[in-house]
Structure formats: structure tokens, C-alpha cells
Design a protein around this nucleic acid. Structure first.
Length: 140
DNA sequence: GCCAACGTTGGC
DNA sequence: GCCAACGTTGGC
């Protein structure tokens, strides 16, 4: 199983919105970046991801699961753009902030740090375990 | 609110 | 196919 990170502006689509969708989940639509799209095409049913709040909050706040593999983004007719569906699994007991991540040596190579503008990104197994530990949260 | 970084577009 | 111009993102 692979791990990912989904970035969202909480004022547009936040963790509470994601939770409100329950197990039905919701399309991760609106991505118009090839790198991010390609990562979504690589995602498999059951893959897990972090839900990250950008802008003011800048923190990993929850864990999500891919509940539908890549398909046409329903918000556009342009067939270049695919997206997956994700559903909320659980919040992090303690949100892990960007500052926390930057301060941690083991996380210094995270895409979040290296390429802050990429909205969908891969997370390594080690990074996943580390952030779950920092967030006092069950990684499974 | 600013600006640096980056990705995309379009003219040549 | 290159590259300048432009738009967007997101941290500060």
C-alpha cells in the first residue's frame, strides 16, 4: 500500500467537509497540474493519505483513504484531468504542523518541504510512520 | 498583502 | 522546440 498527501485550503474544502461526506467520500477534483494528476493515476483502492490544511493552518490534520481510483474529473469536460475519490478515516489526535515537520531531521526530504506548491504528493512509509507518531495517531 | 517559485501558454 | 510572459500557489 502506498501513502500520499492531499493539500487543501480549509476555507475552500477542509477536514470537517471531508468528514461530513462519511464513507461515501468525495471527488478530489479541481486539480489542474500534471504531476499531481499522475500521482492520482497511480493510486490504488485502499491507499492511505494525509489531509493537509494549507494557508493559515499549515498542518496535517487527518488521515484519508482512496475509495475510488482515478476517473474523469466531473468538474471539467477536458479529458486530460482525472481524479480519485477519498474518504475520511480519522483525525490526527494532535495535528502535525509544517513547522514541526521542518524541525524534524527525518522529514527534511518530504515533498511538502521541497516542493511546497505541489497539491498531491507521495509520502514514504518512513515519513508516514513518523508523522503518525508525532500526531499520537494509529498509523493503520 | 507580498513575492518567490514554479507550471503553463503561446508566439516565433 | 525554445523561451518570454503570464497566472497561480502557498509560505512568510
Amino acid at each position: 500500500m502506498a501513502y500520499w498527501l492531499f493539500k487543501s485550503e480549509p476555507s475552500v474544502w477542509g477536514w470537517p467537509d471531508q468528514v461530513a461526506k462519511g464513507d461515501a467520500g468525495e471527488e478530489w477534483d479541481g486539480v489542474r497540474n500534471y504531476q499531481a494528476r499522475n500521482f492520482m493515476r497511480d493510486m490504488k483502492l485502499g491507499d492511505r493519505g494525509f489531509f493537509y490544511h494549507s494557508q493559515k493552518e499549515k498542518a496535517v490534520v487527518g488521515i484519508v483513504e482512496v475509495c475510488a481510483e482515478a476517473h474523469q474529473d466531473s468538474t471539467t469536460k477536458d479529458d486530460r484531468w482525472d481524479c480519485v475519490d477519498i474518504k475520511a478515516v480519522r483525525p490526527l489526535t494532535t495535528p502535525v504542523t509544517l513547522d514541526d515537520i521542518k524541525a524534524d531531521e527525518a522529514l527534511s526530504n518530504m515533498v511538502l518541504v521541497k516542493n511546497s506548491r505541489l497539491s498531491v504528493q507521495p509520502v514514504t512509509d518512513a515519513e508516514w510512520m513518523r508523522i503518525c507518531a508525532m500526531g499520537d495517531t494509529d498509523p493503520n
